[in-house]
Design a protein around this nucleic acid. Sequence first.
DNA 1: ACTTACGGTAAGTGACGGCTTACGCAGAGC
DNA 2: GCTCTGCGTAAGCCGTCACTTACCGTAAGT
Lengths: 108, 108
Amino acid sequence: MTAYAEQVLDALGDPTRRAVLKRLRGRARSVTDIAAGLEVSRPAVSQHLKILKAARLVTDRAEGTRRVYALDTRGLEAVRRWLDGFWDETLAAFKEAAEREAAKERKT
Amino acid sequence: MTAYAEQVLDALGDPTRRAVLKRLRGRARSVTDIAAGLEVSRPAVSQHLKILKAARLVTDRAEGTRRVYALDTRGLEAVRRWLDGFWDETLAAFKEAAEREAAKERKT
DNA sequence: ACTTACGGTAAGTGACGGCTTACGCAGAGC
DNA sequence: GCTCTGCGTAAGCCGTCACTTACCGTAAGT
């Protein structure tokens, strides 16, 4: 559950992988097409795509001998939920602290 | 701008650092207090806190001889904006592709 | 002033991760 | 069937990064 979100964050914690995702904004691309816009070799891109796919940040479909990759929103949604949960708990803590403070005020 | 968001994502791309953040949910804690709940040494926590602070994911204030760290929402907000931007561009691309498809349909 | 608690930093080590080259396999076209 | 293109994987190298121990500065208590 939250372990999946951590996997996504690990996947997003690499500049090259983020560059791959950026390159997928707009249209789906083949592996060589993705690698053409980057400074790393095509096999390196393949390895990153494997990780991104496991994190559900990309999907792939076969198109003849080529493999076309596209963005998968599920990974991004997982990060959003993780973020929301974090923020909610932070706010709850602030609220609780404020109430504790108010109770202390009342005593004095 | 977007470079800052990348810095935050890099900071979030480590399990120990995420554990530190989780430990800061709820209440602010001192360094030794944070390290007490983790499996790494206190100096290791200090090094991570330095990175988290640079990414504006935590803030620190001196309290006597102790240093109390708390969550900083700015880093999380930056990730949220990064996510939103990504999602918007993806949706825009989908919309554009759909319109192109519709135009092609009209011709036939 | 001495001691004690707390935390940042230096130095060194080990491992993990990202990259490259080389290879093998599948599908499309001649 | 042969070739050519596209992609994944294996093997290996190298850099980086997270971690440890040791040390030093600082603030508070006695």
